[in-house]
Structures are given as C-alpha cells and as structure tokens.
Design a binder for these strands. Structure first.
Length: 300
DNA sequence: TCTGGTCAAGGTGGT
DNA sequence: ACCACCTTGACCAGA
C-alpha cells in the first residue's frame, strides 16, 4: 500500500501543470512550458520519495495541447531523455504514478468527433507513460462516460470502442465508478465483458451504490486486477461539511480515514487521496497508517 | 502588480 | 435557457 495525491504539490513552490492560451500557441512556448513542467514534476517526485509518499497522479497538462491538432511540435522525441530519466527514477524507488484524463474523454460518446478527440487524448497520456518506460501497472483511469438517454446502449458502445483501441492504450486503461451515472456494479459489468480493471472511488461509491459494504466491494474489485496490472488502486476522499454533496474535503478527516483503513484491512491496494490540501493530508495519512502492515514508504 | 473574465474539449443536474 | 461542476486553477488583458 502506497499513499499518494493528485497532480499538484502546494509545498515546494512550482506547478507541473503550467499552460497557456490556445491563441498564444507556438512551438517555442510549448517547448519551454513542457520543460518547466517536467522539471517541476521531478521535484515533486523527489519530495514524495523523501516523505514516503510513493504514489502520484500526473497532471494531464504536463504537455499542454498534446492531443490538439495545433500541436505539431515533436515533444515525444524532444523530451524522450528526460521522460526516460523520470521513469527510471520511479522504477528505482518503487514509485507508482498514474494519470486521469479529464471529463472531455468519453470513450462511449455517440459523436464521432468527441470519440476521436478522446482517443487522441488517451494516446497522448499513454505515450507519456510509455516514454517513461513504465510497465503496464502504470495506469490511465477514466470514467465510463455519459448515459445519453440509454445506459445499456452506452455501456455497449463503451465495450465496442474499447475493443478497437490500440493495445498500448488498452494495457493501461482502468475504469472508475462515478458519483452519479456508473456505479461499482456497472464498472464490474464492463470488466466482465472486457477484462478492464476497476478502480474503486470510495467517495463516489458512498454517493452512488446498491448498498454494498466497502469490504464486499473491495473483495470483488481487487480481483479485477491481475499480476501485470500491479496492486489495485483506490481513490479516497470524504465529504466537505456544509458544501454540496460530492465536494471533496479540504483536509483529511482522521477518524474517517482510520475507519476506512480498518474496514479495508483484508485487502492491499494503493491509495490516491483526493483531498484539496494534497501532500499535507497525504503526510498525515501516512502517520495515521503507521503500524499498518500494508504500508510501504521506501523500496530498496 | 493586481484582478476579474475567461479558458480546447462534454454531459449532467439543479436553478 | 443558463450555470456550476468535474481529478487539478492558471492565463492574460487591462487597470
């Protein structure tokens, strides 16, 4: 069990998701931005290793506009050395990273253009991980997508479009339950038809479920991951008091997290903390989990 | 230097 | 019809 957080570190003073407006695109602007983003990513990786946080979600914005037509700069070749170095660093430290394309990636979109742009984005994110030389335990997580007025047909379309993907994308793709449309049971149904591993989002599950207790869900979902896929992944968060249902907390709620650790004790997985204060809560989570035999903070 | 309107992309649900 | 929300706010024109 590793503990991580998404995208941004608020302590070290750099941002790995610098971007710019499409209107100000130039190859030089892109090259400079990506160089800065990768330098920042390297600092975050080092910070995490030093703090025993061996898990990190990389921002989709590491290469801005990478899947947009406007981007003709050969960033893959230009940054292959540094990407490889970062990947080597991860491997050396037993560090796991993941990526999570945003809400525009809809593999079950009925619209051909939306589907095409979605696949281009998946290809970009997969390419980053491939260039880092990371194995197929390094995942790209998406939701099933929209319902489009017919959930069964939309699930069929997801399966159909998945089977046509490049195997390099298929090898990294995992699906995650969402808080409104596709529950854990729906993801499991997709898994049964495709073999795609399922990420449990505990917070989404609390908002959208068929009454299954956490331990039951973990029992089912951890089996959707095989050896090549690495340890199962779990996204953890809880409700911010006083905000709309589904709003992530600002800071980890220790009692809730400890209860989660206890309820899940029979299963091992990596935890992504979707909590707004990022590394601060992740560090506390590590302290709260001290003594839990699953926890790994250092490799080699 | 600071701030407010706006930013590639889609779908949903609340108003 | 319009708007906020989404894994993450950041960019930039104008004051």
């Amino acid at each position: 069990m590793r503990i991580g957080y998404p995208c941004i570190n608020r302590t070290i003073g750099c941002i790995p998701s610098k971007t710019f407006r499409l209107a100000s695109y130039s190859d030089e602007r892109l090259r400079a931005t990506v160089a800065a983003n990768l330098a920042c990513l390297q600092k975050i990786l080092q910070f995490n290793v030093e703090h025993g946080l061996l898990f990190l979600r990389i921002t989709s914005n590491i290469v801005p506009f990478a899947s947009h037509k406007i981007c003709t700069f050969p960033w893959q070749e230009h940054f292959s050395d540094i990407l490889r170095e970062l990947g080597d660093y991860c491997r050396h430290h037993g560090f796991r990273i993941s990526m999570h394309p945003d809400q525009f990636v809809l593999l079950n979109a009925p619209d051909a253009g939306v589907l095409e742009r979605s696949i281009a984005e998946l290809a970009y994110q997969t390419a980053v991980l491939d260039l880092m030389g990371l194995d197929r335990a390094t995942k790209v997580q998406i939701h099933i997508g929209g319902v489009y007025g017919d959930k069964a047909a939309s699930m069929d379309r997801f399966v159909e479009n998945y089977t046509r993907l490049d195997p390099a994308i298929q090898a990294r793709l995992v699906i995650e339950n969402d808080e409104r449309l596709y529950s854990v049971a729906d993801c499991r149904a997709i898994h049964d038809r495709t073999g795609i591993p399922v990420i449990l989002d505990t917070f989404h599950h609390a908002l959208n479920n068929q009454g299954e207790p956490l331990a039951d869900v973990l029992s089912v979902l951890t089996k959707t991951w095989n050896n090549n896929d690495g340890l199962p992944m779990v996204d953890y968060s809880s409700q911010q008091e006083g905000k709309r249902a589904g709003a992530h907390v600002e800071h980890i709620v220790p009692e809730d997290f400890c209860q989660f650790l206890d309820n899940s004790r029979l299963y091992d997985f990596d935890i992504m903390l979707e909590i707004k204060d990022k590394e601060k809560s992740a560090t506390l989570a590590l302290e709260l989990a001290a003594g839990d035999p699953r926890i790994v903070t250092r490799v080699g």
